[in-house]
């Protein structure tokens, strides 16, 4: 499968390999919609297990987004990864897997990455008016949105 995809997309797939028995591929961000579509329709990856992100502030493209997919027919998982810069948007996977809805909202909430075409791009775990995205590496572990806490909870600090 990987060989076939590589043949089709060539340099769009930066790396396709296996680590500790788990397959992954690193893809150019512009290729993401096409690759995900092919994985779902032609390679039977019908179940979107998870979408998540890592933040590498020292890299030029700070965010690495990961789609973890599973195929019931093949009993196999694959991870698709791509890197994007801060402020860049990435097409939503909701049209492919409705499961992506809340998962993408969580990525937005925690990292501030917006997904194009998402039906309801808003925070999910944190309150709507919150400032900052806690899972970014530059967000301190005891950092809070002080203004929000003071206005909404009526206390000096949540700590």
């Amino acid at each position: 499968m990987i060989a076939k995809l590589k043949g089709q997309y060539g340099s769009g797939i930066h790396e396709a390999s296996t680590y500790l028995g788990q397959n992954y591929m690193i893809v150019e961000s512009a290729m993401i919609p096409e690759i995900l579509q092919i994985l779902r329709d032609e390679e039977q990856f019908d179940y979107c297990v998870d979408i998540t992100t890592m933040h590498y502030p020292e890299q030029e493209k700070q965010f690495e987004i990961v789609w973890i997919l599973y195929s019931f027919a093949r009993n196999e998982r694959i991870r698709v990864k791509t890197a994007i810069a801060d402020g860049e948007e990435i097409p939503s996977a909701v049209p492919l897997w409705p499961a992506a809805n809340w998962l993408e909202r969580e990525v937005y909430d925690m990292f501030g990455i917006r997904f194009q075409g998402h039906p309801d791009m808003k925070r999910i775990l944190l309150p709507d008016g919150w400032k900052g995205h806690p899972l970014r590496k530059d967000y301190g572990i005891i950092q809070q949105d002080r203004d929000w806490v003071q206005i909404n909870l009526g206390i000096e600090s949540g700590q």
């Binding site: 925690m110 925070r123 999910i124 775990l125 944190l126 309150p127 806690p134 899972l135 967000y139 572990i141």
Partner: peptide
């Protein structure tokens, strides 16, 4: 949701 969010992944 989120009323019980404790930031486990951040911790």
């Amino acid at each position: 949701i989120g009323y019980l969010h404790r930031g486990v992944e951040k911790i």
